[in-house]
Simulated assay, not measured.
Amino acid sequence: MSDRERTSPKDWATLGEFNGFLAENGEIDYLDAIFVDMCGTVRGKRFPSEEADKVFTAGVQMPQSLYFFDVTGVNEDVLGMGFSDGDPDAQAHPVSGSIVPVPWASMKQAQVLMTMVDGEGEPLMLEPRNVLANVVARLADIGLKATVACEFEFYVLDKDMDRKGRPQPPINPATGIRETANEVYGITELDGFMGLLKEIDEAAASQGVPASGATAEFAPGQYEINLKHEDDVIRAGDHAVMLRHLIGTIARKHNFLASFMAKPFVDQTGNGMHVHCSLMDEKGRNIFDDGSDEGAPRLRHAIGGLQATLGDAMAIFAPNLNSYRRFGPNLFVPVNRAWGYNNRSV
């Protein structure tokens, strides 16, 4: 056995947990066993109710390649995985605490998050969630625990492209007029889309996703929704993925598209995802905060580490060509390794 922390049955949802969910929420027509790939796309398999029990008693066999599809769902046979190796299956098990209703579905549905193990029963390290769990374990080894919160910026778009095949801002349901204003933090800009935003808020609450406030951002049809801080980093990651997923799904239900693309419009501000992070010691003290305005030396050490590894990290922070269209002056986007206090441009 390796030094990686082995996923144990106590981390897996049981049939008893599923039956408890049904007792509280009522019978369902379908259960979605869902997986999240490296691009944050939710994939999976839908089981009719009469087959749902086996997800919790026997698990599910799925191709491990589903974790490294590209954003279009194509398997690029990366490192010979997918086509060259015959696309082998791996065993997946439901994650305890992740059974939730699917309130936007047309039928009575539930979903459960799945996690994969390799042939030795250890966490499959192609799965992003398992990679994060390994990082959490390494922090715990040195007596530290992270607290994080994510913020998502996104565009609400018209479901139809313009005459040149380009995305376009939505028509405001309240006015019947296409959005054109750049009214950052405008309340009126929220009013017209409150049907959509309210359903997003209700769906998040139904799924236990701790969404917080919504704001209008710097472009027509652009919004931001925040998540509350959580000291369970893995669960925070689950919630971030599910918030992004439900925003997109409910937008389609309202005949809009939601785009988290870095730069949907060349002449408008881009989308970002902000991650707030603190590190706590074993007594629950923030190691970055020593009471001074400058913060503790370990804060500056952490910033220095981020600066030193920034080149490699760009594969995550800016994973495609469109990401680089977002970088430029006067856009609240960092363009170098500089850092400053309370400064959105660095």
Rank of each mutant, 00 (worst) to 15 (best):
M107C: 03
K108Q: 15
K108D: 15
Q111H: 06
Q111Y: 11
M114A: 03
M114G: 00
M114P: 00
T115A: 08
M116G: 06
G121L: 07
G121Q: 11
G121C: 06
P123R: 11
L124K: 06
L126Q: 14
L126G: 14
L126D: 10
E127C: 15
P128T: 11
R129M: 13
N130K: 13
V131C: 15
V131A: 14
A133P: 03
V135T: 08
V135Q: 07
V135E: 11
V136L: 09
V136F: 03
V136M: 12
A137I: 12
L139P: 09
D141W: 02
D141M: 08
D141V: 08
I142W: 09
I142D: 14
G143W: 11
G143F: 11
G143T: 14
L144T: 03
K145R: 10
K145N: 10
A146K: 09
V148F: 01
V148P: 00
C150P: 03
C150H: 06
E151T: 01
F152Y: 13
F152S: 03
E153M: 05
Y155R: 07
V156N: 01
L157H: 02
K159I: 11
M161N: 12
D162K: 05
D162T: 08
R163C: 01
R163N: 05
K164N: 08
K164E: 05
K164G: 05
G165Q: 04
P170M: 02
P170W: 04
N172K: 02
N172D: 08
P173C: 03
A174Y: 00
A174V: 01
A174P: 00
